[in-house]
Amino acid sequence: MTVDTTPLRMAITTHQPPVIGVTITGELDASTADGLYTWIADTINQHRPARLTLDLSRLHFIDVAGVRTLYHLHTAAAAGGCTLTVTAAHTTFWWTLSRLGLEPTFAPRH
């Protein structure tokens, strides 16, 4: 399933239960954050994965609203028994998370 909410695009790129991989492309900001939250929450509710991985390597921009949305998604996923992690992202994304003290929250666990 792919949803195009320009300038943000989300697609399930891996579906190997109990893991779902999602690739997010474009810009995650105040104008696209609600759409991402709804889409990811619906994906988790529909598929009930044990783990959902986000590939953000094609994310060109993220603002504080985007980071806040990812944090809320992480919390909501955990409440439903799903671990949400980021498997790929630009170094600026990881730098921003480290400055906010959130890098361990999203780091992949092996």
Rank of each mutant, 00 (worst) to 15 (best):
H15I: 10
T75A: 11
D63V: 09
P7Q: 03
V67H: 05
P104T: 08
P18S: 07
T25C: 11
G21R: 07
R51N: 03
L70F: 05
L73G: 01
H47A: 13
N45M: 08
V3P: 00
L36K: 03
P49L: 07
R68G: 02
V86S: 01
H110T: 13
I62L: 04
G80A: 11
L97I: 13
A11G: 04
S57D: 03
G80R: 15
R68P: 01
P17I: 08
R51D: 01
T96N: 03
T32E: 02
Y37K: 14
A50S: 15
L8P: 00
G26E: 00
S98N: 14
H15S: 11
M1E: 05
E103P: 02
A11L: 09
F61Q: 01
R99H: 13
A11K: 11
V86Q: 03
A89H: 07
G80V: 08
S31E: 12
L102P: 01
H90S: 15
H72W: 11
I20P: 00
A50K: 15
D42Y: 06
R48E: 05
D42V: 06
R58T: 10
A89W: 11
T53A: 09
P7M: 05
H72V: 11
V3H: 12
A79E: 10
P7G: 02
Q16N: 10
G80Y: 09
S98E: 15
H15A: 13
T105L: 15
D42Q: 13
A78N: 05
D55L: 04
P17S: 10
S98I: 08
I12Q: 02
G35T: 10
A65E: 04
R109L: 13
T53N: 06
T87M: 10
V86L: 05
D63L: 05
A89P: 02
R109G: 12
D55F: 06
V86D: 01
T85H: 14
T38S: 05
T38K: 10
V67D: 01
A50E: 15
D63I: 10
T53H: 08
S57P: 00
P49S: 02
A107T: 15
L84W: 07
E103H: 14
I20C: 05
G21F: 08
T83V: 12
T38R: 13
D34P: 01
A77S: 04
I20A: 06
G101Q: 08
A65M: 12
Q16M: 10
D63A: 06
V22F: 06
L59D: 00
L73K: 02
H90P: 03
T23V: 10
L56R: 02
T91E: 15
G21I: 09
G80F: 08
T2Q: 14
L100H: 08
T87R: 14
D42T: 12
A89M: 09
A33H: 01
T69W: 03
G101V: 11
T75D: 11
V86K: 04
V19P: 01
E103V: 14
L56V: 09
L70T: 02
L70C: 04
T85G: 04
L56P: 01
F106G: 02
T87K: 05
A33S: 13
A65I: 08
T69E: 00
T2V: 14
H110D: 14
A78M: 08
M1L: 09
D29Q: 04
